[in-house]
C-alpha cells in the first residue's frame, strides 16, 4: 500500500510517498538517492546500514520506512557537505586511519555518533560495546576505536566540562521515538 509520510531528514522536513513494505534503507538509497548508507547483509548483522532515528542507532535494513513518520532521521549525508567542515568523528576517522575500504565507515560513524552524542567521554569498553554491531573486515578495529576515542575527547572539549554527563538512558522509550514519552519510571 502507498502512503505519504513526513519526517525530518538531516534537519530538513520532508514528505514523500512510500510503500508499506519498504525499509528505511530502501527509502534512503533507492528513492531519495542517499547512497551513503550501505547494505552489507540486509539482516541486521553487519551494521553498514546504521542510521540514527531519534537519537538511537538502528539498522535501517530492518526498520520500516512507514515507522519514520514524525521522527528525526540522521544519515551520514547529514554530518557534512564539504570536506572542509567534517564532523569531528569524520575528521577523526580520516586522521587516525579509521578508514580503509570505507564500506563500513558510514554505519560505523553513525554508531559512534549515537554514542558520543549521549556520552562523549565514553571509554574504550563502552565504545567497543556500542560498535560491536558494526563489522569491519579491513582495520581490525584498532584504528577505528582510536578514532572514536579521539573524536569523543574533542567533542567533550567542545561541549565544555560537564556538558556531556550521561543522562539516565532509561528514559528512552519506544514511543518517545514517535511522540512524547509514556509513563516510564526507572
Amino acid at each position: 500500500m502507498t502512503k505519504t509520510i513526513s519526517f525530518i531528514l538531516n534537519g530538513d522536513e520532508i514528505s514523500c510517498d512510500i510503500q508499506d513494505h519498504w525499509t528505511l534503507l530502501h527509502l534512503l538509497r533507492e528513492e531519495l538517492g542517499l547512497i551513503g548508507t550501505k547494505e552489507g547483509c540486509g539482516n541486521g548483522e553487519c551494521g553498514a546500514c546504521t542510521v540514527i532515528v531519534d537519537q538511537l542507532a538502528i539498522n535501517s535494513c530492518l526498520f520500516l520506512a512507514a515507522d519514520v513518520q514524525g521522527k528525526q532521521i540522521q544519515t551520514i549525508e547529514g554530518l557534512a557537505v564539504h570536506t572542509g567542515s567534517l564532523h569531528p568523528i569524520q575528521q577523526s576517522f580520516v586522521d587516525n586511519g579509521g578508514i580503509q575500504c570505507g564500506f563500513c565507515t558510514p554505519g560505523m560513524i553513525m554508531s559512534a555518533k549515537a554514542l558520543l552524542d549521549k556520552n562523549a567521554r565514553a571509554d574504550k569498553e563502552a565504545i567497543k560495546h556500542a560498535l560491536a554491531g558494526n563489522i569491519c573486515r579491513c582495520t581490525g578495529y584498532v584504528q577505528i576505536l582510536d578514532s572514536v576515542e579521539a573524536a569523543g575527547r574533542q567533542m567533550a572539549g567542545n561541549q565544555g566540562k560537564g556538558a556531556a554527563a550521561a543522562k539516565d538512558p532509561g528514559t528512552i522509550t519506544q514511543q518517545s521515538m514517535n511522540k512524547k514519552a509514556g509513563e516510564v519510571i526507572t
Binding site: G36, L79, T83, V94, T105
Partner: peptide
Amino acid sequence: QRVPKLDAAQKAMGRAEYIQD
C-alpha cells in the same frame, strides 16, 4: 609521513561509489 588516506574524507561522508551504487 602519516598522510591520511586520500579518499578517506570522501568515504567518511558517504560519497564513495561502490558497485552497489
